[in-house]
Amino acid sequence: MNIFRLAGDMTHLMSVLVLLLKIHTIKSCAGKSYPCSLCFILLESSSGISLKTQELYALVFATRYLDIFTDFISVYNTIMKLIFLGSSFSIVWYIRRHKIVRRSYDKDQDTFRHFFLVLPCLLLALIINEKFTFKEVLWTFSLYLEAVAILPQLILLQRTRNIDNLTGQYVFLLGAYRALYILNWIYRYFTEPHYVHWITWISGLVQTLLYADFFYYYFSSLKNNVKLKLPA
């Protein structure tokens, strides 16, 4: 474990917590008898969260952590896997099923066919992998899928007029975690012999590059202290 990887995992955890906070805000808000102005805004405007991306991430964790009960690595590793599995599936459940949260989900805008991401990633995992075994192919699939899982969310953000802060923070933290992982891979490459994993590295690089334009608009909105806006 190195500082880059720990920072990466904590950033990833933060992104999940921000999303859970956002869902909690929507839930608690709608419970009020009188719609306060914030509540009204929250409930009327779409939450800006893409269910498609959340479903893709649930699939990423489900196929990435197949070995959670077979290969024990550390308490930290197991706990974090359980947190990511539990949170991603519960977020999908909230947006799909929760009587209040699902009202803030704008399915007419979140139209990305994530099937078009799942199939190519699966085919690619069948062709390019480190070992042609069930677990290894699914693990490789989860790497390819995670690289593109943010696309429905980024496209939804372009369509969403005013991106609220929590959603912007969520996407930023999600992009930042993989960027920190790249530093972790560089560190491990120079400190550990035989540590070479092209598939992981290239997938992680592609994933981070997909956030490049978001990072640009995110930082310029911070610098100019204006609302985050992605060009359509």
């Binding site: 990887r5 995992d9 990833h12 990435r64 070995d67 290969d71 690595i73 550390s74 590793n77 974090m80 896997k81 990511f84 693990w139 992982y181 972790n184 891979w185 491990r188 550990e192 012999p193 035989h194 540590y195 994993h197 992981t200």
Partner: peptide, 10 residues
Amino acid sequence: KKASSSKDEL
């Protein structure tokens, strides 16, 4: 020693 795999990462 098992080649340090990236499976020990999340």
